[in-house]
């Protein structure tokens, strides 16, 4: 007798968010991308719909990333000085679905670049590639508040994914998304209650923004509390599938940033002979972290190492095979 699989039934689904805009839609992207829309837990195609494959974004900086380890930098040595060429290489050679531009130059302790300088870089990247873009400031809220608005205005209609709105600093990003028709990242410090509350605060500014939020639940890398990130994401996704509209957004994670700040990724074999080849280890660390997050329901992974990107894209191909 055939065994009948028990199938969980959910009453709701994750919102679907569209990134980018083509010429007809008011932008200049060659295509748009959809994320979210799941009505089942990750890759359980037999219990519901997983209509959109998770996306891999590759991270580029608007300055030479001196702090990146040599092994990682070597992939991009020929393009570091040109963000447009760097973006193009990520898309054409390494298969990035999206490009995440980090405006590090705006950091007051680095170059303190002005909004105008950042806009010039953004325009170069927009011209160089046709994929939708994610933009991040330098990470210092006070300065980022002065550049995200102008960047959003300069790229009006492109439907960028703007980073990042936080509970105590969400208004400038949310206003920019609202005024110039972009999506936004709502970031919370590995805290499901704040993730939900932040979405409510953004919705109070503008209800239609609810369909343009991507949650960054903040993640840890493998070995640094990833199980905590995982359980938060799992709980949020269960909530979304059971009807919690304020947690039913697709998600994004800064995998590369987390992984490459950990010693397991960058310490050489000479220093830690027992840890084995640094290059292989770092690729594995980034790919395994991304793989675990995919299983928790991550929709967009922002990554750095092209080899890890290749492995993760292959994993996504496999997991997206219909198993219903």
């Amino acid at each position: 007798m055939a065994v009948e699989l028990f199938k969980e039934k959910y009453r709701s689904q994750v919102r679907e968010v569209v990134l980018g805009a083509t010429k007809e839609e008011g932008g200049t992207r060659s295509h748009t991308l959809k994320v979210g829309g799941e009505s089942a837990l990750p890759f359980l195609h037999f219990e519901g719909k997983i209509p959109n494959r998770p996306l891999v974004a590759m991270e580029i900086w608007d300055i030479v990333p001196e702090e990146w380890p040599a092994g990682l930098k070597s992939f991009f040595e020929d393009v570091y000085n040109d963000p447009g060429a760097w973006a193009k290489k990520c898309v054409e050679e390494y298969g990035a679905d999206l490009i995440a531009v980090r405006f590090k130059s705006a950091d007051p302790d680095i170059k303190d670049a002005s909004a105008e300088e950042c806009i010039a870089t953004l325009k170069k990247v927009l011209e160089a590639v046709g994929v939708p873009l994610i933009i991040y400031g330098c990470g210092k809220a006070e300065k980022d508040n002065t550049i995200i608005g102008p960047l959003a205005e300069a790229a009006e209609g492109e439907n960028l994914l703007l980073g990042v709105a936080e509970q105590d600093n969400f208004k400038s990003v949310a206003s920019a998304a609202m005024a110039y028709k972009h999506c936004l990242i709502a970031q919370s410090p590995i805290d499901i209650n704040i993730a939900k509350q932040l979405n409510i605060l953004i919705a109070e500014m503008s209800t239609p923004l609810l369909d343009r939020i991507v949650i960054d639940p903040t993640v840890a890398s493998l070995g640094y509390g990833i199980e905590y990130s995982y359980s938060i994401m799992e709980r949020a996704r269960f909530g979304a599938l059971q009807g919690d509209r304020m947690l039913a957004m697709p998600t994004i994670a800064n995998v590369g940033h987390e992984v490459w700040s950990k010693k397991e990724s960058f310490i050489s074999e000479e220093e830690q002979p027992g840890w084995g080849c640094q290059e292989e280890r770092s690729i594995g660390w980034e790919a395994a972290t991304a793989g675990a997050l995919l299983q928790a329901g991550m929709d967009i992974l922002v990554m750095r190492n092209p080899k890890a990107v290749g492995l993760v894209k292959k994993l996504i191909d496999d997991m997206m095979q219909d198993n219903s």
Partner: peptide, 15 residues
């Protein structure tokens, strides 16, 4: 039964 957030009463009312 519901995930906590500071505005949980308002969320319940609007659901």
């Amino acid at each position: 039964m519901d995930i906590y957030c500071d505005s949980y009463v308002d969320v319940f009312k609007s659901q």
